[in-house]
Design a protein around this nucleic acid. Structure first.
Lengths: 263, 263
DNA sequence: ATATCTTAATGAACGCCGTTCTCCAGGTGA
DNA sequence: TCACCTGGAGAACGGCGTTCATTAAGATAT
């Protein structure tokens, strides 16, 4: 991970009498050209280790074995860095040629892969939620998604909203996933435990809590608690996605598409 | 002592996964100028004036003419304060008795009033997005929404997702609204100008930008740019909402409900 | 009336944060 | 050789959330 001073144990602090000789000469050989890419990369490392709230310019600099001011030569601000990270999300993201016959599958694939990308880095949904994909680099992706909707035959005012709708759904779903995960993580362990927090125990506790609610006041919550807890996130994601897809399909001339399971 | 806002139904005991709020914050008996309520109120004042990024404990204290540390007698942390503000969103929020015949109108009304509440304070959607309504005080509201879906006849696994889906939609839509508003505000004025930023000019500029895109690369974006910009936010909100409602309706036994306009 | 207890509020402090500024070592080209 | 450039260091500024010892002021008990 920390490949800057590879393997070398932490050097002792320089004694005051040798302050004439700055330790910098030893530490900084010409072998480390800093770059925007390296900064972004280090930012992802810090993000995954400490979460968005622990992602500071100082931590990124430390990850690179560099002072914080050095970062500002390659990144104009922290917001700029976050935007670079957001843009990085879409790298290699390609949409197939729009096929009116398979638009549902195409949108499903887009949404699922979008969710996977958000899940690939901690707190990534929070970063994504704070940005709008209408930058120059990201417009082609928006275009590709709109192409699928319009080619499928959706009316323009529906297609215009559909992109926002499913993007919001993806971000919002993963955001919520992350909040539950964090809560479960804080709940049982000291944080330094194994990667997977006691998710199972958490689910059980939720089940118990819902079951403990007064039956006359919360009949529906009690009835659905099992589904909300026990279903896998992937299942729940697909269900919500399917609701949206059916809603979109209802605007197509072909009425049969409306309620076909199609999954 | 715990003078919860009157009228709300008795909240269930606190769930195990919500952050424990140490009861350290006690209500002063008689002659206390400062109170939890006043702190939250001042926080809203600061929020509306300076936005979420400018909402600091120090600013809230200054608003009250008090030192920062005084706040911590009534609020256990900034997160606690934000959660109180989030909960405040739902004050007086009531759902009518579920009517299977009118479930669409009921959900529409819920969503629209939810959006209005989010719009009533600057950056409120950002706060809402960061919270889950599964605290003791808020569970009744979740129950009421689920009741509408279940009473309407939706299958359980659909109803269980539907609540999350429309809540996420509301939050996400208003969040995006706010981001555009902020962008427009930063764009034209020095910030000290009139309340309404040059929204019109911004829309025009976006129109021009989209129109300037190469036609062969962005045909769909160019075709839909007018709709995305010129339509009022209220219209766009209703369109997305309708997509979701239709998707939900497709799971009802009655197939006629699927594509009925119903608006 | 005096001493004690309680409690709201203070003010200083700690350790972070993003950002900016000055300065210097080392390499480059003339 | 010397001036120039550049990438990074280091210190500093103001602001942040939070904690803690202390004070002032009322209430209570003696």
């Amino acid at each position: 991970m920390t490949d800057a001073p590879a393997g070398t144990p932490a050097p002792p602090p320089p004694s005051p009498w040798e302050r004439e000789r700055p330790a910098r000469a030893r530490v900084a050989p010409a072998r480390a050209p800093l770059s925007r890419e390296r900064v972004v990369e280090a930012a992802f490392t810090v993000l995954d280790r400490q979460g968005l709230d622990g992602l500071s310019m100082r931590q990124v600099a430390a990850e690179l074995g560099v002072t914080v001011s050095a970062l500002y030569a390659h990144v104009s601000s922290k917001d700029d860095l976050l935007e670079l990270m957001y843009t990085r999300l879409f790298d290699g993201f390609t949409m197939p040629e729009p096929d009116p016959e398979r638009w549902r599958e195409q949108v499903r694939a887009y949404a699922r892969s979008g969710r996977q990308r958000l899940l690939s880095h901690r707190d990534m949904a929070r970063i994504s939620m704070a940005h709008v994909p209408f930058t120059a680099e990201l417009l082609p992706h928006v275009e590709a998604l709109l192409a699928v909707f319009r080619t499928a035959g959706l009316p323009d005012h529906i297609a215009a909203e559909a992109g926002d709708l499913i993007s919001t759904y993806i971000d919002g779903f993963v955001l919520e996933e992350g909040m539950w995960r964090d809560r479960a993580g804080r709940h049982g362990g000291d944080g330094s435990s194994l990667a997977r927090p006691d998710w199972r125990e958490m689910a059980e506790e939720m089940q118990n809590y819902f079951a403990s609610l007064p039956a006359e006041d919360f009949p529906h919550l009690r009835a659905l608690a099992g589904l909300m807890v026990s279903d896998s996130s992937d299942q729940r994601f697909d269900i919500g996605l399917e609701i949206i897809l059916r809603g979109l399909a209802s605007y197509l001339p072909d009425p049969a598409a409306c309620s076909s399971p199609d999954a």
